[in-house]
Amino acid sequence: MQFYLARMAELEREREELTTRLAAAPQNVPDVHPGMAEICKSKAARLVEALEYSKMRLDAAKDIR
């Protein structure tokens, strides 16, 4: 029983520490770059285009791997 009480106290301290760290963290930071979707879309389009041309197909296939 003592083990569980000690573990609960440890978890409570950890929760307090995490709560403090979260409160101090910047609030308006985006999770990903705002233009990431457009970058990925552009890269995918170039890859599809490269796969359509036989001369570039091998290089494009290597890029996929």
Rank of each mutant, 00 (worst) to 15 (best):
R7C: 02
M8T: 12
M8C: 09
M8H: 10
M8K: 13
A9I: 01
E12R: 11
R13Q: 14
R13N: 12
R13H: 10
R13Y: 09
E14V: 00
E14N: 03
R15L: 11
R15N: 13
R15Y: 04
E16Q: 12
E17K: 02
E17R: 11
E17W: 04
L18H: 01
L18Y: 02
T19F: 01
T19K: 13
T20C: 01
T20E: 06
R21E: 08
R21A: 05
L22N: 12
L22I: 07
L22G: 03
L22F: 11
A23V: 04
A23P: 03
A24N: 06
A25P: 09
A25R: 11
P26W: 06
P26N: 05
P26V: 05
Q27R: 15
Q27A: 15
Q27P: 12
N28S: 15
N28L: 13
V29I: 10
V29N: 03
V29R: 08
V29L: 09
V29E: 10
P30A: 11
P30G: 06
D31L: 07
D31T: 00
V32N: 04
V32P: 07
V32A: 07
H33S: 11
H33R: 13
H33M: 02
H33V: 00
P34D: 13
P34C: 13
G35A: 14
G35W: 08
G35E: 15
G35L: 14
M36D: 09
M36R: 11
M36E: 12
M36P: 00
M36S: 07
A37K: 01
A37F: 05
A37L: 08
E38D: 04
E38W: 01
E38N: 07
I39D: 12
C40V: 15
C40I: 15
C40R: 15
C40G: 12
K41A: 09
K41V: 06
S42Y: 03
S42R: 12
S42F: 07
K43E: 14
K43W: 11
A44P: 05
A45C: 00
A45D: 08
A45K: 09
A45H: 03
A45L: 09
R46Y: 08
R46M: 05
L47I: 05
L47D: 00
L47H: 08
V48H: 04
